[in-house]
């Protein structure tokens, strides 16, 4: 449907004002709000994520796109049914204990939210037992761990070990990322996925819960 394409393009072009107009116009045409959200806004952010991954778009542009999208979501939210606001999955994300870096982790959280996942961002310096507690409390399907320091990378393994010991390992897919983290390291510590940037992180999170 052309409306969705225009919404997607407008989002990718970072035109917040036009995007709001388009969302309102679509509502006037009685297009279901859930479709506007999923086939328009979220689908548009998927393109943004891909462009980020391919270095066609950069962090400031991604931030602008996310801001524009959230304005659109604000309009739609009151109109969505409970079923429609049910998201694609629940994510726990945090920086591991001993590490206080949060910029990359917050970008990942934002991209996952924009991809339609429910994200619980626990913050920085999070102990393994706190991750475990939150997986239980939020009944999460995905756990995302971030570390920016070579000295805190071993804490990722300790956190995964704690999840295994808690008996929750089968319930969650575990993703890891951060500047020093590699696919080999992810394999080594028993993670399910590694992502090198926020765009690909959101994409692989969706794939993991699909």
């Amino acid at each position: 449907m052309t409306d969705f394409n225009e919404i997607k393009e407008t989002l990718v072009n970072l035109d917040e004002q036009r995007l709001i107009e388009l969302v309102n116009e679509a509502l006037e045409k009685d297009i279901p709000p859930g479709d506007i959200l999923n086939k328009g806004l979220i689908a548009g952010m998927d393109i943004v994520g891909e462009k980020m991954e391919n270095e066609d778009m950069f962090i400031p542009e991604v931030l602008m796109a996310a801001k524009a999208m959230s304005k659109g979501v604000e309009i739609l939210k009151p109109l969505l049914s409970d079923k429609e606001t049910q998201t694609r999955g629940s994510v726990i994300i945090g920086t591991v204990k001993g590490d206080l870096h949060d910029i990359g982790k917050n970008l990942v959280a934002m991209m996952m939210e924009s991809a339609g996942l429910t994200v619980h961002n626990l913050g920085v310096d999070i102990a393994p037992e706190e991750f475990v507690r939150m997986i239980k409390e939020k009944n999460a399907g995905i756990l995302c761990l971030s570390a920016l320091l070579t000295t805190t990378m071993p804490m990722m393994k300790q956190t995964i070990d704690a999840v295994v010991e808690s008996g929750l390992r089968d319930q969650v897919k575990i993703m890891v990322g951060g500047a020093p983290v590699t696919q080999a390291f992810a394999d080594d510590i028993g993670a399910d996925a590694f992502a090198s940037d926020a765009g690909s992180a959101a994409k692989s999170a969706k794939a993991l819960v699909a």
Partner: peptide, 9 residues
């Protein structure tokens, strides 16, 4: 000396 404390950056 890094301007980092327990609250982060």
């Amino acid at each position: 000396a890094l301007c980092m404390d327990d609250s982060g950056m």
